[in-house]
Simulated assay, not measured.
Amino acid sequence: MYDFKPTPDAPKNAIYRDLLSAAEGLTAGERDGVANMANVAALLWEFLPDLNWAGFYRVVDGELVLGPFAGRPACIRIPFGRGVCGVAAKDAATQVVADVHAFSGHIACDPASRSELVVPVQREGVVIAVIDLDSPSPARFDDEDAKSIEALAALLSKRI
Rank of each mutant, 00 (worst) to 15 (best):
C85S: 08
C75Y: 09
H101F: 14
A70V: 15
R77F: 09
A93I: 09
I76S: 08
G71T: 07
I107R: 03
R123A: 11
A88G: 06
V96G: 01
A74Q: 12
A112Q: 15
A102E: 11
Q95H: 04
R58P: 04
D110V: 13
E116Y: 05
A74F: 09
G86Q: 02
S104M: 15
L117K: 00
K90R: 15
H106N: 08
D91Q: 14
V100S: 08
G86N: 03
F103L: 05
V118D: 00
H101I: 07
W53G: 02
V65A: 12
P111Y: 10
G86S: 06
A93S: 14
D99L: 03
L117Q: 01
G71N: 05
A108V: 13
G67Q: 06
A88W: 00
V60G: 05
I107V: 12
R72I: 15
F69D: 04
K90S: 10
S104C: 11
K90M: 12
G71A: 09
S104N: 15
V65P: 02
G55Q: 03
G67F: 05
L117G: 00
V96F: 03
V121D: 00
R77P: 09
G71Q: 05
I78M: 01
V59L: 08
V84Q: 00
A92G: 10
L117C: 01
A102V: 04
S115Q: 05
E116H: 04
A108Y: 09
A89F: 06
F103S: 01
P73L: 14
A92F: 10
G105H: 10
R114M: 14
V100A: 10
H106S: 06
H101K: 14
L64P: 02
F103H: 03
E124L: 06
D99N: 11
G67N: 07
V119K: 01
R82V: 15
V121A: 02
G83R: 05
R77W: 07
V65C: 12
P79C: 07
A54V: 04
G55N: 03
R58Y: 13
V121E: 00
L64Q: 03
V121C: 02
A93Y: 07
F69N: 08
P73N: 09
A112C: 10
Q122D: 07
A102S: 13
C109W: 03
G55L: 02
G105I: 11
H101W: 10
A54F: 04
G105S: 12
L66H: 07
Q122W: 07
N52W: 13
A89M: 09
V59R: 04
P111Q: 12
V121L: 04
Q122V: 10
R114P: 10
A92H: 11
R58F: 12
G55W: 01
S115K: 04
S113K: 08
Y57W: 08
F69R: 06
Y57E: 02
F80M: 15
C75H: 07
R123N: 13
R114I: 08
V118L: 03
P73Q: 09
K90T: 05
V59D: 02
L117E: 00
V119I: 07
P73K: 14
R123G: 11
I76W: 07
